[in-house]
Amino acid sequence: MIDTIQSLQRDAMADIQAAASLERLEELRVSLLGRKGRITELLKGLGAVDMAERKTVGAAINALKQDAADAIESRRAVLMDSSSVLARPLDVSLPGIAPLDGGLHPTIQMMYDLNDAFAALNFDVFEGPEISSELYEFDHMNFPPDHPARESMDTYWLASADRSGEDARGADRLCIRPHLTGGSVRYMQRHTPPFRFVYPGRVFRNETTDARHERAFFQYEALIVEKHLPFSAGQLLIRTVLSTVFGRPVRTRMRAGFFPFVEPGFEIDMECVICNGAGCKVCKQVGWIEVMPGGMPHPNVFRAGGIDHNAWMGFYVNVGLDRLVMMRYGIDDVRLFHSADLRFLSQFR
């Protein structure tokens, strides 16, 4: 009898552990513990057992009953946990639900990337006014009085109001700024060197627009003024800008360039990121792309800013931000930036 019980115990435990579904487990429960179950039948047959053995056999059957019930319960818990929560099939190939559909203008994103990079180098962020005057934008910038940029075919002058008549000059002649550099003198006048700051913003030129020319565009400028800052140290600015934009160091070169507000002045070229300097259509086969002018502030600019040019040295760089954004994404028409076209803007998240 004990042998039968032990054999049933082995079989029952093995079957329960092997039950692969809740249905199979229920079948087992009924076949073992149901009214006509095999364990139930053993208990029913206990009366036929010798009195001497009945107690031992009874205890063994009850132990078996308890073990089987426990094993079924623990197997049920395992099977339950491994079953699906889904009431019906879920098509995992359905499209995801997009998060909030907003974003910054790609040029502003680039501006903020650069602000962060320069903030890490302890640069201040400065903002000059969009409406400025000939005094700051040209006179302080060492543009000669007859420089063509002062003409209305280049600069958007404001129409004469009460103060600024046709013949107004200097502080009385107002414009929407044609470059950011004029604002640097405002910063110089408000602060004492040494300092280093960036001053991003939008500038305006009276131009005929096409895929490469816009009337309104963004620039990014940085200026350091220190006691000792030879022009080769100005490369810090260039490297910071380019490695931020392209995510890796980019080879650059400085070559002679002329701008009234710098001396010496440079054109700063970067190695063409398309062909890595080998020469291609984008770089007109020269391997280099002109990206920014820069140089040491002209003594007349320092003078306008109230800084002694014999005691201080500086370095400017001026980046055409839109152009870098175009290179970053391969955009072929600068006019898209001011189009407000969401089909364009929503591509840069």
Binding site: D101, L104, R202, L345
Partner: peptide, 9 residues
């Protein structure tokens, strides 16, 4: 969730 646009002044 707004998209930034830039217009002329």
């Amino acid at each position: 969730g707004l998209q930034e646009v830039i217009n002329y002044p």
